[in-house]
Design a protein around this nucleic acid. Sequence first.
DNA 1: CTTCTATTTGGCTATATGGCAAAATACGAA
DNA 2: TTCGTATTTTGCCATATAGCCAAATAGAAG
Lengths: 110, 110
Amino acid sequence: MKSRLNPQYEARARIIKAMAHPSRLFIIEELQKQERCVGELTEMIGSDTSTVSKHLSVLRNAGLVSDEKRANSIYYTLRCPCVMDFIGCVEEVLSANAKEHANILKCCKK
Amino acid sequence: MKSRLNPQYEARARIIKAMAHPSRLFIIEELQKQERCVGELTEMIGSDTSTVSKHLSVLRNAGLVSDEKRANSIYYTLRCPCVMDFIGCVEEVLSANAKEHANILKCCKK
DNA sequence: CTTCTATTTGGCTATATGGCAAAATACGAA
DNA sequence: TTCGTATTTTGCCATATAGCCAAATAGAAG
């Protein structure tokens, strides 16, 4: 990490890094629809509760979600719904990749 | 990584992960303005050539940039400029965090 | 062919991350 | 207080990543 870049890039990278995991992307997408507690998310994702709890703390530390305790569960909410805008672009990259891959295959078949 | 999530989430996470590094964010931003070769980017970032080269290969493998050899340099281009849209939202998260942090400080001073 | 330049690759170390299981904590209810 | 449920924290291990240096490669230029 030795570079003379503006520290702003590190701040941005921290946020993006917090999103860079399949389960956390799922959580973000789910919380955009409605708030959820750890147990519900764990159930949907299908991995250990402690693992999901860690993912949530990563998202919380990045400021991407906020939590509120009600009854005996903690409900998580997406703080900046704009993060969902990412997905459209990511899908665009993925389909561009898929198209290119198809072209390479077609080319090699000849 | 043991979960029963749709593999689509992994594909998306791979793309986002490729962006989750300060130097790579800088490269993306710079390439959005104009194409650049490894030497130029290395100069701007201020780290080892091999390190920058590796960052570029991460971006290339993710399909975020493409490269073209001309003269005796390899020029990199941003493939999907929409990735720059991320930054606006990331900044929004950062300023929300800063605001919250300021509130906490104010609250504790009392 | 040889040299020079630009870039990539391999080897190495240090550090960070994900996942699971067990222990710890928080707190409402009995 | 004690019990039970929901969540977080901690310890451990395996794997992945960043960084630097040195060596390898690809071409252009001589």
